[in-house]
Design a protein around this nucleic acid. Structure first.
Length: 741
DNA sequence: CGGTAGAATATTTTT
DNA sequence: TATTCTACCG
């Protein structure tokens, strides 16, 4: 994946897109057209023209893209100054601005940022408090609806006045939606907290209702550049319009054909309307694809031409013709996974350590399982993107909740999360009493616990005392807030959080402790930074950065959803599960323009490949606990004549049902990273050949001696006498330790 | 109040 | 199937 072709000259269109720094500019950049390079060269060019880096605002959609961009601008300009460009995601840049301007919006500067899990929990509680039926009021659904409304700048007041929306709710027996929406916003505000969407709408509100502040930022951001504009939503577009109004030095980069986020409110029209909103818009089209073979580009073009809504452009490639796009039909999803792995295996056997050149892309995360099975069976190293990020894990979120509460005691959500974690005898009855009192008095729960009327709450003395203990713990933590590492240590000490996990060293808990110590390591490193190393800085940094990097350098096959593959490239791409109902998805078929978006999604998938694309589908698929028949995707019909003939791969002699064997080879079971629970039937022996009497050092329990080794049920267990922690039985497979003697 | 077992429910994509 | 929720019992 060598995207840094800086030695090569820019082509004429790229060059003019870089040079045109004044006025509104739209750059339509096809896949593989050197978009990132144009953006970075453009920023470098601005700096070289004497424009101050701090007057440049460059927005992206992911932190990864932002970091990559920063690095590359720095490499070109070779000046430390490059780092003072305002570069980041919409969310992170605006969060920074909102911290500075919070007072104008009625927030405290230390507001908490809620992630989606927090939001859904709040909504779930509202629904429960109101005794609404779960059939019509599903918390996740309500949340996504609220999110879409927010992104369209329809607040709860506007919602109520919108006859059509209200009528619709009535028809769908969701009349209380509006009230939930309103209460949710009130609860967030009372908690001095913002969800992801609030970061955008509050920024919009800040600028639209405060001419002075707007003017200040218009002067600051004289040059604005936004990547992936096709994925902006209404608020984002509105903010950019406000900020860019004065100088109009706005450069938007995007590709309408790669718009794949409408489900979260992205509005493809933003890119179409750009030319209408500004006069003298200069438009540049980057149409040469430097990435892919002619065959791949041809298939992608053919496919996307079935979409009606698009900006005319002709993507072409001057690379070799390459191999044809291949289509394979399988009998079922398991064979699809198995055979895909086999194809990869064949290629990497000839060229060792080239795993990273292969990527398997799918529509849903749930499809990864059979693919993993196939790869694991052949011992092919792979990495899987998505799933729970480090900061979304329960144990990490628990600790973070303490931190958030320390910084912002009004944060009810964090308080509720940890008021009885670790268990300290404060049950749901008590919590509800306190919560109701807080709601009645329109105070935060923390304030309710701490004001004079606390004693009036009807709880027995024992329970009340437990609340007092909780208050003391938090108060002491708040007091200690001078060095974040000390705070963290005090937290562990006074809550006994890790101690309780250690007392019950199940595999799951050991894994949790490891994650916590990993968090502490990064805390330690963070605390050693010279500046911006406060607890608040730490929380801010990770609330919006959900990525966790893979530290190993091994060559691995990539498995990810197509959405996650955006912006990446691989020589060999396998797109699996091309079946109606899966891709295009069931839901998309019912939504207007839904199929067009799915088609763009496939377009994105195909254009990730530089050398070869392999498409496949299965006649039967195991889904929701049953086997379902499926038919090949309508998209295959769209590009049929671009494909190599359909290869049939129906292996009737395969065993399908319930067995863990294919061709007599047992598939090792997947180790579930969150659970690590189900590990039966798997023979495991430690490679290090453990013996009774060995001295080991465990990462948590320290030094100890092996007393017993038990291989009876296939999973090796060792019983170890630890110097400080006494006798423990560990599963060798998961225990992290080294042999000392 | 806390733990558990068994029922209910959801399966698109994510900053 | 996998995860989350509920109801019940100690």
């Amino acid at each position: 994946m060598n995207k840094d072709n800086s030695a090569i000259q820019l082509n004429p269109q790229q060059e003019s897109a870089v040079q045109q720094i004044e006025g509104p500019v739209i750059i339509i950049a096809g896949p593989g057209s050197g978009k990132t390079r144009v953006i970075t060269e453009r920023i470098a060019h601005l700096i070289n023209q004497g424009i101050k880096p701090k007057n440049i605002l460059a927005l992206t959609f992911t932190n990864k893209a932002a970091n990559e961009m920063k690095q590359r601008v720095y490499n070109i300009t070779n000046t430390q100054e490059a780092y003072s460009v305002w570069m980041g995601t919409f969310h992170s840049v605006f969060a920074k601005i909102l911290r500075n301007e919070s007072h104008s919006l009625g927030y405290e500067f230390n507001f908490t940022i809620y992630d989606n899990e927090d939001s859904v929990k709040i909504i779930r509680r509202i629904i429960k408090d109101r005794n609404l039926d779960k059939e019509h009021y599903n918390a996740k659904y309500i949340f996504s609806k609220i999110s879409i409304m927010k992104n369209q700048l329809i607040d709860s007041k506007k919602y109520k006045l919108n006859y059509e929306l209200m009528q619709n709710d009535k028809i769908n027996k969701r009349e209380k939606f509006f009230e939930i929406y309103q209460e949710y916003c009130e609860l967030c505000a009372q908690s001095n907290s913002m969800d992801f969407d609030d970061l955008l709408i509050n920024t919009y509100n800040l600028f639209s209702s405060n001419k002075e502040i707007l003017k200040e930022y218009q002067e600051l951001f004289k040059y604005i550049l936004i990547d992936e504009y096709q994925d902006t939503n209404k608020v984002q577009d509105a903010i950019i319009q406000l900020l860019g109004q004065k100088y109009q030095n706005i450069c938007i980069v995007g590709d309408d054909s790669q718009s794949i986020y409408s489900f979260r409110g992205a509005n493809i029209n933003n890119i179409f309307n750009f030319k209408l909103n500004y006069s003298n818009v200069r438009e540049f089209k980057l149409e040469q694809n430097y990435r892919s073979t002619k065959n791949i580009v041809h298939a992608a073009n053919t496919l996307i031409n079935f979409n009606k809504q698009k900006i005319e452009k002709t993507i072409f490639s001057e690379n070799e013709k390459g191999e044809p796009v291949q289509l394979i039909k399988y009998y079922n999803d398991r064979i699809e996974g198995d055979k895909t792995a086999e194809i990869i295996h064949r290629l990497i056997s000839n060229q060792p350590a080239t795993n990273h050149k292969h990527a398997i892309l799918y529509r849903n995360n749930s499809q990864s399982k059979v693919l993993e099975d196939g790869l694991r069976r052949r011992g092919i190293k792979y990495k899987i993107y998505g799933g729970l990020s480090f900061y979304q894990r329960k144990e990490i979120k628990d600790i973070m909740a303490y931190f958030k509460l320390i910084l912002n005691p009004d944060d009810n959500e964090s308080l509720l999360r940890i008021i009885n974690y670790p268990i300290r005898g404060i049950g749901s009855t008590t919590i509800d009493k306190v919560r109701n009192k807080a709601t009645d008095e329109k105070k935060s729960i923390w304030n309710t616990l701490n004001d004079e009327t606390f004693d009036e709450i009807q709880i027995n003395a024992g329970t009340k005392n437990k609340l007092v203990i909780f208050k003391e713990i938090i108060k002491n933590l708040i007091k200690s807030d001078n060095n974040i590492f000390e705070t963290a240590e005090l937290l562990i000490e006074t809550t006994g959080l890790v101690r309780k996990l250690k007392d019950d060293p199940t595999d799951e808990n050991i894994n949790r402790i490891e994650n916590i110590s990993e968090l502490f390591n990064s805390l330690k490193l963070f605390s050693l930074k010279k500046n911006n190393n406060s607890l608040a800085d730490f929380i801010n940094e990770i609330s919006l950065d959900e990525t966790k990097e893979d530290k190993t350098n091994e060559s691995k096959v990539s498995l990810m959803t197509i959405h996650q593959s955006k912006g990446l490239e691989f020589p060999y791409v396998y797109i699996v599960g091309l079946e109606n109902g899966l891709f295009p998805s069931q839901r998309s078929i019912k939504v207007p323009n839904g199929v067009e978006e799915e088609r763009r999604l496939l377009y994105v998938a195909i254009t990730r490949a530089s050398k070869k694309v392999t498409l496949s589908y299965s006649l039967n698929r195991f889904q929701f606990g049953t086997i379902q028949q499926s038919e090949r995707s309508m998209f295959i019909d769209n590009i049929e004549h671009c494909l190599d003939k359909e290869l049939k791969n129906e292996f009737e002699n395969y065993s399908f049902f319930g067995k863990r064997k294919i061709n007599n080879i047992t598939i090792p079971k997947k180790i579930n990273p969150t659970g690590l629970r189900k590990i039966a039937n798997e023979k495991y022996q430690d490679k290090r050949n453990l013996k009774v009497g060995m001295k080991i050092k465990h990462n948590i329990f320290g030094y100890g001696n092996i007393q017993k080794i038990d291989n009876s049920d296939g999973n090796q267990k060792i019983t170890v006498m630890f110097n400080e922690h006494g006798l423990k039985t560990l599963l060798t497979k998961f225990a992290k330790f080294e042999i000392i003697l």
